[in-house]
């Protein structure tokens, strides 16, 4: 959505938001991104974004739709590789290691940085197979017993175990939307990633299922680093420690979630969280 035309104080002059307001760096970052530019063919979608993600934090990314949140998120585990026209430049480090190093294999990277998508996308296989697939391809379990254990542990962590333990052999696609999304989370954590990326994980869910996922994110943050894109400011406020506000491909402001929502420094951030555009 474009900015409110009548509001001249918000008119787009890139110099007003091309440098990020707030503290980009953190100590001992889990991931560290510098000077990230992303373009789809001729069209640049991300401009010079600098951001650190701390260990075991929940960082949320908000902003008007089309501002590049998903694009940026998908850089973090190179899911953008699947889009032919997408070119990423800049330094993106996972624990100091360049993830866009041409010699780096994306398979272990994606095992370390897992992803949950907007629309629940379980495999059209059994609940068990959905969760077991990741550990299976990465060889994380040597025996059937170990695999069973991983599946059970992951489903428990995703808060789905009690609902599905009697029907693990039934198709994952037969679950409700919220259950499917939790199954997708269980599937992701079954490979023990260090970072979990979530791209609007609740946008297809009803409020109750959403609350359930938000609770889950809170629980998971004890063990995982989570980066979540959301269009719901309430959600960002509820689940995240830090919030990043994106605008037209620029990272406008980054700060603690409390500060961003109670005392934003940048006028664009303020305009967005007060609902003047979105």
């Amino acid at each position: 959505m474009s900015m409110n035309e009548s509001n001249h104080s918000l008119s787009s002059n890139a110099s007003e938001y091309s440098t990020t307001t707030g503290q980009i760096e953190v100590e001992n970052p889990k991931m560290s991104m510098r000077n990230v530019d992303v373009s789809y063919g001729d069209k640049q979608a991300i401009f010079n974004v600098n951001l650190d993600i701390a260990k075991n934090e929940v960082i949320s990314m908000i902003g008007p739709s089309g501002c590049g949140k998903s694009t940026f998120l998908r850089c973090l585990n190179r899911m953008n590789d699947t889009i032919e026209s997408c070119k990423v430049s800049g330094d993106l480090l996972l624990e100091g290691q360049d993830i866009y190093d041409p010699k780096l294999d994306v398979v272990p990277l994606r095992a370390r940085v897992g992803m949950v998508f907007q629309k629940p996308n379980p495999f059209p296989k059994s609940i068990y197979d959905n969760v077991a697939y990741g550990p299976h391809i990465h060889g994380l379990a040597n025996t059937k017993f170990e695999l069973d254990e991983i599946v059970e542990k992951s489903l428990k962590k995703a808060g789905l175990w009690d609902e599905v333990k009697d029907r693990l052999d039934q198709p994952g696609t037969g679950l409700s939307g919220g259950q499917q999304q939790r199954l997708c989370i269980a599937r992701t954590i079954a490979v023990s990633p260090e970072v979990i990326l979530m791209d609007e994980p609740c946008s297809a869910l009803d409020p109750i299922a959403t609350a359930r996922i938000e609770e889950l994110i809170d629980e998971l943050s004890a063990n995982y680093t989570i980066a979540i894109v959301t269009h719901s400011m309430q959600q960002a406020a509820r689940v995240s420690h830090r919030t990043a506000y994106f605008h037209l491909g620029y990272l406008v402001e980054i700060g603690s979630t409390d500060d961003i929502f109670t005392n934003p420094s940048h006028k664009l951030t303020e305009a967005y969280i007060t609902g003047r555009f979105g």
């Binding site: 699947t82 994306v106 398979v107 990277l109 992803m115 629309k119 996308n121 495999f123 990741g134 391809i137």
Partner: peptide, 23 residues
Amino acid sequence: VPPSIREAALGLGASKMQTIFDH
């Protein structure tokens, strides 16, 4: 076959071959 299935497999760290032949 919807792209979401490919994304799901790739996102888990499946290689292209595994994505294609498993899903």
